[in-house]
Design a protein around this nucleic acid. Structure first.
Lengths: 152, 152
DNA sequence: TTGGCTGCAAAACTTTTGCATGAGT
DNA sequence: ACTCATGCAAAAGTTTTGCAGCCAA
């Protein structure tokens, strides 16, 4: 399967095109799942997407939802939040610090940053809740090197 | 069980005291598990802790590790990274943005912050990997209100 | 001594996979 | 028509729970 690297609008309009370019079929299930994602602001998990889509496609199966979500991720149509397919990670360090999280391999590194410590938490964020630590999500050096080797 | 709110050094020295204050027993299993956590810089998951501790306490069971880790979290001896006991969450928004993640209820909200967008990524962080999005971990307003009601 | 803690085993829950059928191109 | 995608069912994997015996206080 080809990876589609271009960004696309968050709408169904071009969904068919995107599928064509990626060389995958544009099925009812895939359309409804993508549609649900762009309408749901809550960053749902697979189960939640399943329950919602099931109202429109009564006999869709949960495994199709899982397969479709990971397919979308491969296509770069969506992203995932936090380390990929990970379980809860535990941290005994109670001192203020930040985390670098590799979304590919799940590596988590502590780091300190005066700049981030002294961030002026903007008013809009204060309204959402009380801010604890910061996490920087990215791809670690090791995974970058691996990717390069594979794509060469 | 009483919650211990004071910070404690990341060492075993005061572990017994901490247990006493929290009104829980200081067992072999709990000591080894805490010891493993403070020696492991990789923010391990439950399974990883289990494998390590098993080398010293041959017949410790995985369920004890789970129970102990959540106990430590209740005692505020450790924290967890990312939304609590959560599954992977999916995000169709490919535009640059940040997330507020409530570690209590799992709420995830998008937000934008010019200040965070223009953060000078420090050299030490660049060395770790390529930075993508930022996540602010905290407690959302709703959970704060709930907590207050419960503790009143 | 005694109540909380543990290990065991089983249950509950989540996610993935093989395969025959069905749908999109 | 041809092939990929789906639903089903089962497997694999992860986390929680009930209970009887054990151990720290």
């Amino acid at each position: 399967m080809k990876n589609s690297t271009q960004k696309q609008p968050r709408s169904l309009v071009h969904f068919k095109n995107i599928c064509q370019e990626a060389g995958v079929k544009c099925t009812q299930q895939r359309m409804k799942i993508y549609s649900e994602l762009i309408q749901n602001p809550n960053h749902p998990d697979a189960e939640t997407v399943y329950k919602k889509v099931k109202k429109q496609l009564a006999n869709i199966s949960l495994d199709t939802v899982y397969r479709t979500l990971w397919l979308f991720k491969d296509m770069r149509l969506i992203t995932t939040i936090g380390p990929s397919r990970e379980r809860t990670r535990f941290d005994p360090n109670l001192n203020p610090h930040h985390h670098f999280i590799c979304t590919k391999c799940g590596l988590i590194l502590d780091f300190n940053s005066e700049q981030m410590d002294t961030l002026d938490i903007q008013e809009s964020l204060k309204a959402i809740g009380t801010v604890g630590s910061l996490q920087v999500q990215g791809i670690c050096r090791g995974c970058e090197i691996n990717d390069k080797i594979i794509s060469d």
